[in-house]
Design a protein around this nucleic acid. Sequence first.
DNA 1: AAGTAATGTTAGAAATCTCTAAGATTTGAA
DNA 2: TTCAAATCTTAGAGATTTCTAACATTACTT
Lengths: 162, 162
Amino acid sequence: MSVKKEKRLTSSMEDYLEAIVVLEKENGVARVKDISRMLNVKPPSVTSAIINLSEKGLVEHELYGYVELTLEGKKAALDVLRRHNVLFCFLAGILNVDPKVALEDACKMEHSVSPQTLENLEKFIEFVKDSSNQGKSGLLKSFTHFLKTGKRKRFSIGGIKQ
Amino acid sequence: MSVKKEKRLTSSMEDYLEAIVVLEKENGVARVKDISRMLNVKPPSVTSAIINLSEKGLVEHELYGYVELTLEGKKAALDVLRRHNVLFCFLAGILNVDPKVALEDACKMEHSVSPQTLENLEKFIEFVKDSSNQGKSGLLKSFTHFLKTGKRKRFSIGGIKQ
DNA sequence: AAGTAATGTTAGAAATCTCTAAGATTTGAA
DNA sequence: TTCAAATCTTAGAGATTTCTAACATTACTT
């Protein structure tokens, strides 16, 4: 009975998984060259990573061929992607951080955000965004105004206009 | 003229700086043993780190003596601490994440949050918190309620009661 | 003051992740 | 089909960070 001790994936390995799932979505398949370009690492680093992920049962790979996520790998990759997206939405959509910066931050923070924080962040986004049907909610408008001027504007949640 | 190329500090080195500044605040001085305990690493790791930080001009250290931050080191350490505190405030105070989890997350995320995100986060905290004089603001109460029940409650910002 | 306990350092090894250089395989063009 | 370009892998080295084991120093205790 080989009960593998599942160590948490490193940030690096999560990056590779994420790149692979994104490439699969974009191109149907993931190739070493594209992973390399996407992550700004050299091809040998990708090969090493693939061997590593393959030993963990997260990807399948034939020499000189494509890289494919296993079911488990896909699950892990989508989890990273979800963290990324939630963080990006919050940073760019609520905190009003420049999208380029928000992207960079999301790419780094996605590896350290806990499930609980992620869940509450998702709910917070829902809470803030759903409170307006069109574009920015009152809260968002008010905060954006506060960011620019330092002054508060009234706003409402729950459909009650002030 | 030796113009050192100042590479960004690694997460690890930031952790050491942060521990040192916290210990200095608590005990007046920082010692290897305490840094070791605070960061959950063995003493030789601390010694290595101190040598590293010392080469960067961020700490001073006499063999078998105390560790002290230089001016530059203190500046860097306080910067990390500020990131930590802002993140913790947001997670625990606004997102309603369990303080223990919020602490862990802050400790990890503090190394990857950009200045712009940090600044906007600080303003967001100010925006949300200052909108009530006593404890949780309307927004906070409303979000907490939403977290628990999934239902929205009306609230106000700007001192206007609904 | 001497010896023991506590603390700190040195040396050297292991894990992780990246790179360069060089060689292998595949693809595509003539 | 054969050769050149593109792609991928292997081998080996370097950086970073941690550890254990052994040794050095300092601080107590009596």
